[in-house]
Write a protein that binds this DNA or RNA. Structure first.
Length: 777
DNA sequence: GTTCCTAAACTTTTT
DNA sequence: GTTTAGGAAC
């Protein structure tokens, strides 16, 4: 970061060193409300951390009086690290830096008892909510009215983000509309079930904190007094509930809630003035409207917080001018925005590389080949990222990456914690921590199989109701149900295990709780002894989970079961990003927000994918998709690749794809289009619907149904296994796709060994020997 | 109560 | 093409 140094006293301050005038203003402003409009790559993290560092260093307030909200846990950790680097680890102790959800969990765990919840409440993820809603829809036979689980879940979530609870909804509904009445009943029962289970869903974490503050001004005052400076990052993606939370936290404290011994400065009436608020955002990067994010929060900030100061950061320190030109050109097509132009002093840099493949496999091969070239030219794998619109697009990429021996990791997507065996064991842990959680209890009741079927489950649930207690209470009292001796014994055994663990929950280490469960239920042994070949992988996952708990305990020696469960519930896709891993990162465009890489690939830049088909119907959909593309482009520092395929297979059948409308918005001279190597002789007619140059169009598509074997980059669907085949430098081999070649190097050991092969016609490739479709000649 | 087979749904993005 | 849900058979 280099800016012309102005000769002022401030230059002596290392915390202002290297900042441009706007950035300095943003660091130094002491306005009660400050909006920093930070374009992509404009050094906003540097500004935020230095602002916080100055507050602490100059003793304007204690670290514990600072609340900073970031979008992901990873961003929070990064910010803490950078502040510690500036003022020292000791001096930074006590700051709250976290996501909205983590901060609210922290508050709720402290205050839950105030309003009828227990401190060990469970956090339901979307899958848990859906499971519960599914049961309710069934019980109510709501499906006959056309209710689907996802529609109900979506509507409840939207209402909660708007701070409308079941009672609020009942006041505004039409009592003559049976579907509205039914929905209200579902909403009511869902709310009641959560309360009974001592659980909050994701949306509750925010909404219930707001309700808590509104219902208990004394509790609210506690936090209003404590936090004197509040910073919110990615403000453009806050929803109404989050906005309301900010409003609650930035209320002045009434004199009646001011303790006599307060050291805080009082206002004229004897109260404590409102906390200062700093928000950072960029409406061009708002991509979470589907989650309730309301762009008005940032647009109307100045009106909401009177006397607010606004600082604009437009200079970009990340990307080349070529990349910025493309980004500016694309985003300029969104009409309802405040004009803003990113600029840089870096220079034009390389052209954007465009590629049109025949199929998604062809496209993936291009990506893999380009990554290999970049790597050989000195770009580390960790500085390369591949983005896509939907998670389903990873498959083709992964297939090719595995076969090319490229080290990669997928961020987000089908997560570890969504696997059945992991959910099983997590359900045990939850049942131990929160005996009221019926959902977890139902899951473990017959896992592993102990002969407790649906009939017994219902009997136990009814018994719990009769006792007026939890499922756990019913289990202990199973003898009263008059079931068979075998089933009764199994139930009592489970109840005993849970009792035993619940007794030790405050003292036992988390890995010990888990291993006790695994041993007593024989979980691992059963998987090992199974003849289902997939169970071997499941057993490995179970061991991985044990390793995760050990890791957790190592990092949090004081952490107990509830802390572990909280951490697991709130980890986001981008959070487990380990920069030191030395791998290429694959992720959705949404996950890419806030990250940056030397080389970026945006794949699947096609109509119906980017913009996505589903977005067309939504108001503001195409504009939001454009912002998504903009976010993707602006992640790149040095080189950007845009690729698409002419055909794409979804659901097993192949459809013709056409280039995204957004590609036409990038000036032609910025992109260097390359041909697909699998397409044979180049055609002279290259046109796109609009007449702009740049693409091969579908005129050259083969007739439908024609086998794809004629293309050099064809990918065989099944993964083959060459067993223990070993290759040495100089060996001649024949590859199904690439033809004959000579091995020029071999790296790696055992099943992970990779051969570098110089092919006669296809060039140099790296292949995973074990599975590449090749034979030794 | 458990296991196995067929059918249908599935893909937007996530804390 | 894959995964999951539901039903039939044991």
């Amino acid at each position: 970061m280099s800016t012309p140094a102005s000769a002022s006293l401030a230059d002596a301050d290392p915390l202002l060193d290297g900042l441009n005038p706007q950035q300095r203003t943003a660091v130094l402003s002491r306005s009660a409300a400050l909006l920093i409009v930070a374009g992509a790559g404009s050094g906003k993290t540097a500004v935020l951390t230095r602002r916080v560092a100055r507050l602490i260093r100059d003793r304007e307030l204690w670290p514990s009086q600072i609340l900073a909200i970031t979008f992901t846990n990873k961003a929070a950790a990064e910010m803490r690290e950078r502040v510690e680097l500036l003022v020292g680890r000791e001096a930074a102790q006590g700051m709250w830096i976290s996501t909205f959800h983590s901060a609210c969990v922290r508050i709720l765990r402290r205050e839950a008892e105030q309003f009828g919840f227990g401190a060990a409440f469970t956090i339901y993820d979307s899958a848990d909510s859906r499971a519960l809603i599914k049961r309710l829809v069934k019980e109510m036979q709501a499906d006959t009215l056309g209710f689907t689980v996802s529609a109900v879940a979506g509507k409840i979530s939207r209402l909660k983000n708007e701070l409308v609870d079941a009672e609020g909804y009942s006041r505004q509904l039409n009592p003559n509309d049976p579907t509205e009445v039914m929905f209200l009943e579902l909403f009511r029962r869902y709310t009641a079930e959560l309360r009974r289970a001592n659980a909050f869903d994701f949306d509750d974490l925010i909404a219930q904190t707001v309700y808590l503050f509104r219902a208990f001004p004394k509790v609210a005052a506690l936090y209003q007094r404590r936090f004197r400076h509040i910073l919110i990052d990615e403000y453009q993606d806050t929803n109404h509930a989050q906005y309301a939370l900010i409003r609650e936290l930035t209320r002045p404290v009434e004199p009646v809630h001011v303790p006599v011994d307060t050291r805080v400065e009082l206002d004229a009436t004897g109260g404590i003035p409102a906390a200062s608020l700093t928000v950072v955002g960029d409406s061009d990067q708002s991509i979470y409207a589907f989650r309730g994010a309301d762009i008005r929060n940032i647009v109307e900030f100045e009106r909401d917080f009177t006397g607010a100061e606004v600082v604009l950061l437009e200079q970009n320190y990340r990307s080349t001018q070529t990349i910025l030109d493309a980004a500016n050109a694309v985003i300029a097509n969104n009409f309802d925005r405040i004009a803003k132009n990113l600029f840089t002093a870096v220079g034009a840099g390389d052209k954007i590389v465009g590629f049109t493949g025949y199929t998604q496999h062809d496209e993936a091969q291009f990506v893999a080949d380009e990554i290999q070239k970049l790597h050989e030219a000195g770009t580390p794998y960790s500085q390369i990222a591949v983005f896509y619109r939907t998670n389903a697009q990873t498959r083709a990429l992964e297939e090719i990456f595995i076969r090319s021996g490229l080290p990669y990791r997928v961020l987000g997507g089908t997560k570890f914690y969504e696997r059945a065996e992991i959910k099983d064991l997590m359900a045990y842990l939850i049942a131990v921590a929160n005996p009221a959680d019926g959902l977890a209890m139902r899951r473990i009741l017959n896992t592993p199989k102990r002969g407790i079927g649906p009939a017994t489950e219902t009997a136990l649930a009814n018994h719990a109701d009769e006792l007026g207690g939890t499922m756990h209470d019913a289990l202990r009292d199973a003898a009263a149900l008059g079931l068979g001796p075998k089933v009764t014994a199994a139930i009592l055994d489970l109840a005993g295990l849970l009792d035993e663990l619940a007794d030790g929950v405050t003292t036992m280490l988390v890995p010990d709780v888990l291993t006790t469960i695994i041993e007593r239920t024989n979980y691992l042994e059963l998987l090992r002894g199974s003849r289902d070949p997939q169970d071997e992988a499941r057993a490995e996952n179970v061991e991985e989970l044990v390793a995760v708990t050990r890791d957790f305990q190592k990092n949090n020696p004081e952490g107990r079961l509830v802390d572990f469960l909280t951490e697991v519930a709130l980890v986001a896709a981008a959070d487990d990003l380990d920069d030191s891993s030395g791998t290429v990162s694959l992720m959705t465009l949404h996950t890419a927000k806030g990250l940056e890489y030397d080389a970026v690939f945006i794949t699947g830049v096609e109509e119906n994918l980017l913009p996505h088909q589903m977005s067309a119907a939504e108001p503001g959909g195409p504009a939001e998709e454009r912002r998504l593309f903009y976010v993707g482009i602006t992640r790149a520092r040095k080189v950007l690749h845009l690729s698409l395929a002419m055909t794409r297979s979804t659901f097993g059948d192949t459809t013709v794809a056409s280039p995204s409308r957004y590609l036409q918005e990038i000036p032609t001279e910025l992109i260097d289009w390359r041909d697909s190597p699998g397409m044979g002789a180049r055609s002279s007619t290259r046109s796109l619907g609009s007449g702009r140059d740049g693409f091969r169009y579908s005129a050259s598509l083969p007739p439908a149904g024609k086998p794809k074997t004629e293309w050099a980059n064809r990918v065989t669907a099944s993964v083959r296994d060459n067993g223990d085949l070993t290759l040495a430098v100089g060996d001649r081999i024949r590859h199904v796709d690439f033809g004959d070649g000579t091995v020029s190097a071999v790296t790696g050991v055992g099943p992970k060994s990779i051969a570098e092969v110089q092919f006669e016609t296809a060039g140099r490739k790296r292949l995973l020997i074990k599975i590449a479709p090749l034979e030794k000649l």
